[in-house]
Design a protein around this nucleic acid. Sequence first.
DNA 1: GGGCAGCTCCCCCGCGCGGGGGAACCCGCT
DNA 2: AGCGGGTTCCCCCGCGCGGGGGAGCTGCCC
Lengths: 224, 224
Amino acid sequence: MTGQGTGHGTGTVRVALVDDEPLIRSGLAAVIGAEPDLEVVGQAGDGSEVLDLVGRTAPHVVLMDVRMPGVDGIAATRALVRAGSAARVLVLTTFANDDHVVDALAAGADGFLLKRSTPEEVLHGIRTVARGESLLFPDAVRELARRHVRSAGPAGVPELARLTAREGEVLRLMADGRSNAEIAAALVLGVETVRSHVAAVLAKTGTRDRTQAVVLAYRSGFVR
Amino acid sequence: MTGQGTGHGTGTVRVALVDDEPLIRSGLAAVIGAEPDLEVVGQAGDGSEVLDLVGRTAPHVVLMDVRMPGVDGIAATRALVRAGSAARVLVLTTFANDDHVVDALAAGADGFLLKRSTPEEVLHGIRTVARGESLLFPDAVRELARRHVRSAGPAGVPELARLTAREGEVLRLMADGRSNAEIAAALVLGVETVRSHVAAVLAKTGTRDRTQAVVLAYRSGFVR
DNA sequence: GGGCAGCTCCCCCGCGCGGGGGAACCCGCT
DNA sequence: AGCGGGTTCCCCCGCGCGGGGGAGCTGCCC
């Protein structure tokens, strides 16, 4: 999960697909197969088949769904990395603030894509990770993920569990509908400081603005 | 919803695809296009385009996603039926116990398929409805149809009950963390219009900004 | 002692948001 | 015919927000 050093040079990029939905697999295969520089070398419908698949087909990039019955994409990614595979893993997820995104990155994924992406975005993502680059929204996520491995969060959403005490306080106040100035007053801080904390919350949760962060806070049960 | 009488005889079955996710559309197109007796004659990414699409391409079968931003598959199906279209509608849904399934069938759909179906099942479904038969998976569909009568309107907070239908839609999308531009895209509106609706929501709920409105929406149970 | 993470505060900058107006259209009701 | 509510789109304007930097301090761990 270092994100550099194992880039794929020129030539055809070998791609393996792992998704439990055959329709998605077909779609990806059709989109990828139509590109001259990309080639689908294998498919699997379950995480348990991944190791075998990669061993047989030696793909440069594995497109991996996070949510799968049985062995999910995270466990499969972890297994791949542990086995010392050179394959780069691009994780497919439904939501940007999916609970599993951080875990996936921690497991060694090189990037993630939304399932609602356009075919063009998917192709770009594949080429990006094939070059050895990472495909992430915030860089902070990677740092976050690295730290996440060694301390098993007791409860809640992983991203939210990684918030510091202060950031958690700020998020709770955000989830109460307060502005930065009001939060600053409540915590006896400068507005600038609150801004920093808010920025950290957004980065760590992968959300774009305070509203999305608040939505995540409610949906995850972080606040009620 | 009758399920008989308008069957398609022999020859190539013309299929139209309606789904907001390009990846799914590509997948379906690839799967269907590979069959000698089936042909994809058109695609749309939004329910609002359906009437026009069907008018232009005269498909025998419309593969329709239920959940779409803006005009959803149910409304689109209803519009098709109301317009007296001969096209048969096969609804695509993610979950078998989706509340929308019953509504979709009531709207005039001829059957539904799970998105996690195999390509073979999809092809079989298309051919089945093209013959004029209905495709109702034996599962829990009948049960759902019976206990369909769900009362319990939102109504919880008086301010929220005073919202118009449109304003309610906008608030729900706000509570999904979407920006004005994204809401506009989802509802196929101008950003200016969304701004008007958001302003109305804020005024009626007595909230200051979108975050407070979203907080109210969650705490009141307007959204979950 | 150095390194690192967390907390605090500061700068500039672009932009989305919200407030203040207005106007057109359709619909249903009177 | 007149009216009001709902929906749609438009203008200008101020400001809070978020992104990009940086910096000094504490406390902890190696």
